[in-house]
Design a protein around this nucleic acid. Structure first.
Lengths: 249, 249
DNA sequence: TGGGTACGGCTTACGTCGTAAACCACAACG
DNA sequence: CGTTGTGGTTTACGACGTAAGCCGTACCCA
């Protein structure tokens, strides 16, 4: 009662009071893509644990259950967010352009594309990292990313055995996973505005570990791009060596 | 009513019917450690998302609220589980024995210790990986793990600058994080007996990517220990090179 | 012996979550 | 006109984390 709308004119500005959310452009007609985009925005702003169907609906100017006409469940919504992010890497023109520059160059561009995505959405990246087990940037459902083909077959054609290609792929994936998870964790600090700050008690014991406590500051500083670059290059060098060994034998 | 106990004798076996849980050794008097251990067991058996205060209580033969006398919140309980696991790495005699074998040897033993822990508790490892941002195996709260000191100061004393030591530490951490997360994800398959299996539809599109689909099987096979070993050794070699460069200059 | 007092666990209750189901307004179309 | 979608709301259910209060038992000191 007292909350109908879409007629024409009345005060209307009485409920609000919930948060900083805009009344939302509630006239754009709602769609799966809009929902996914809004979910990603929400995660970026408020952190993964703060995302709730009701809150997401509210941000879209709509009741929670309305979302279920476009998305079968929250779980699938999160999957869609992941796909959206990974799809965005493809849209990154730098990643794909000429697919024939050699696999090292390609892997390097892909890695940087994923890193850009991770840094652009630090709160959301743990989601994509924890989702479908095998790193998603090479799953076929990644629509029309033909370069995947280039990567794998490139390895195979250049002398990698199946096992070596898989191992190389895994080394690459786990490198990205580990490096970016750490980088993103400190970059995003993880606590969204909706979360309460916890105690933060107990700095005791640090006295016993002078070196550790001395480095404590540095430990939470930014991963630098050069750190990433160096590690990536070392990895690619290692893969190259492995490949050459396989070719020689 | 009709559910008093601790007197002496009566049938007593009437409630059950809930699941496969044993009636629980409900005479051991409950304690924080017992709760933490039970939580870990539960996660190992049923997966992280299945863990619930009520269910955990039930497994201990106790009502959910009883746990709150020993644990302030679920969040802190999970922290305690992580500490328990990491503490277990310390108890791994292989890891620590003689702290003076050189930092490469130490890092190698530590890495294998953590890997053993991760493989022993595949469903719980993502928890420890996602917890307090900076890898916890070097946090001082890890009670009496003096070798932490050895590691860091070892690096410093052998010519690493502060920044280089931090970078080395990060390379090491992110390597462990990434590698073990992948290894554990396939090893544990993540779906606990409590979860429903989801659709699994849509194998379409694979036809366009013959190489990928050919490797699809291999991709979900086990990470082998040798894969880990090789990557670890490559990493340590790289750190050694970095250190030597720093010494030379 | 008796009456605190503290502990350990139970019961109840609140607010929030994901979501099933029914309902409703309105447009398009026979 | 009635029918059938379509896009949204309302209501409701069960499960969650957990605050608050209630009790039975054990111990302690008079």
């Amino acid at each position: 009662m007292s909350k109908d709308q879409a007629d024409d004119d009345y005060p209307d500005a009485d409920l609000a009071a919930v948060g900083g959310e805009a009344p939302a452009s509630s006239r754009t007609p709602l769609s799966r893509d809009r929902i996914v985009a809004a979910a990603l925005d929400f995660i970026d702003d408020n952190g993964l644990p703060g995302l709730t169907m009701r809150r997401l609906g509210e941000q879209l100017g709509v009741e929670a259950m309305a979302l279920y006409r476009y998305v079968p469940s929250k779980e699938e919504l999160l999957d869609a967010v992941v796909d959206h992010l990974v799809g965005g890497v493809r849209a990154d023109e730098v990643v794909l352009d000429v697919p024939q520059d050699g696999w090292q160059d390609f892997l390097q561009r892909l890695a940087h594309g994923i890193r850009r995505m991770a840094l652009a959405h630090p709160k959301a990246f743990p989601l994509v990292a924890s989702r479908p087990t095998e790193a998603p940037w090479l799953r076929p459902p990644l629509r029309s990313l033909d370069v995947v083909e280039t990567f794998i077959s490139g390895l195979l054609e250049e002398g990698f055995s199946d096992e070596a290609a898989v191992a190389a792929y895994r080394a690459y994936s786990s490198f990205l996973l580990g490096h970016l998870l750490l980088e993103v964790a400190e970059h995003g600090a993880d606590v969204g505005p909706l979360d309460v700050l916890d105690d933060q008690t107990g700095e005791a014991g640090t006295a016993r570990y002078p070196s550790v406590s001395r480095l404590r500051g540095s430990l939470s500083e930014d991963h630098s791009a050069v750190e990433f670059e160096e590690a990536l290059e070392a990895l690619l060098d290692r893969l190259t060596i492995v490949r050459n060994e396989h070719i020689d034998s």
